[in-house]
Amino acid sequence: MSKIIVTTQKGKTRELKGESGSSLMEILRDADMGVAAICGGVCSCATCHVYINGEWGKKLPPRSEEETDLLKELESYDPSASRLSCQIEFTEELDGLALTVAPEE
């Protein structure tokens, strides 16, 4: 079983089951991880912001221009780690992925 290691805004660490074909946002939302994801995954609101831990960022598909345009305007933006979780589809290759939920803005 593939897993995702999530650190919440409250600093708790949880291990979630990763389901291929779902976006990271959907997996986080399903587990009540405190991701608002208001626009539902269409890259319009930046309320599903997460930090990808360590080297995992390099294994993900790159950010689109739209995703970057939204992320760059967040106060909590970290160029090396910030992603919108709705824009990343979970696959088996991401087994063990570690991320931290970013603060709400």
């Binding site: 930046a46 345009d69 939204l70 305007e73 803005e105």
Partner: peptide, 9 residues
Amino acid sequence: INMLKDFLP
């Protein structure tokens, strides 16, 4: 309209 960078600011 297709101008995402203006939205949050």
